[in-house]
Computed example of a mutant assay.
Amino acid sequence: MKIILTQPVTGLGEAGDVVDVKDGYARNYLLPRKVATAWTKGGQKQVDSIKAARDKRAVRSAEDAAAAKARLEGAEITVAARAGSGGRLFGAVTPAEIAEAIAASGGPSVDKRRIEVRTPIRNVGDHAVHVRLHEDLAADVTVSVVASA
């Protein structure tokens, strides 16, 4: 099934891309979450407008992403979470909590969907997190998780 992505999807494409996916993936996941729309001939106008807006932002955002990468990699990001004895957390640290901690530390505002946590953060300590800032640019950030009172 051909669909038009309206938001970036990891491993599939960026907003405005026309991609072919299996019918069930489109019908059960992408379309109900409003991440994509079905492709039609009239939908091509929508694709053109999304791509034009993306191209206009691309140059400006590439420069902003380079500056944001420099600020992120030099920042100390600390997340406070409830922990039991032995440093094991009650639950896990989510990308939304990491995004809030980045903003609180004076870093750039980062969308939680752009933060990739390779393994769930369930212990107190330092953890590596990958933040996609632009199509070609990403920052590796160290997040310190501390036990809250």
Rank of each mutant, 00 (worst) to 15 (best):
M1T: 15
I4E: 14
I4M: 13
P8V: 12
V9G: 12
G11N: 15
L12D: 14
G13S: 06
G16L: 11
D17P: 15
D17W: 10
V18H: 14
V19N: 10
K22S: 15
D23G: 14
D23Q: 12
D23A: 13
G24S: 15
A26S: 13
R27M: 14
N28I: 15
N28W: 09
N28K: 13
N28R: 13
L31K: 11
P32S: 09
R33T: 04
V35M: 14
V35W: 15
V35L: 15
A36H: 08
T37Y: 08
W39Q: 10
W39C: 14
T40N: 05
K41Y: 11
G42S: 12
G42Q: 14
G43F: 07
Q44D: 14
S49W: 08
I50H: 02
A52W: 11
D55I: 13
K56S: 13
R57K: 11
A58P: 15
E63A: 05
E63I: 03
E63V: 05
D64S: 08
D64H: 03
D64R: 04
A66G: 09
A68T: 05
A68V: 09
A68L: 04
K69A: 06
R71I: 09
L72W: 02
E73V: 09
G74C: 02
E76S: 05
E76P: 02
I77E: 01
T78W: 01
V79C: 00
A80I: 05
R82F: 01
G86M: 10
G86R: 07
G86W: 09
G87T: 04
G91L: 11
V93Q: 00
T94L: 02
P95S: 08
A101S: 06
A101E: 05
A104N: 07
A104K: 07
A104C: 02
P108G: 04
S109I: 09
S109G: 09
R114F: 08
R114L: 10
E116I: 08
R118C: 06
T119G: 07
P120V: 03
I121N: 01
V124R: 03
A128H: 01
H130M: 06
V131N: 02
D136P: 00
L137H: 03
A138I: 02
D140Y: 04
V141H: 01
T142Y: 02
V143K: 02
S144P: 00
S144A: 00
S144C: 01
V145T: 06
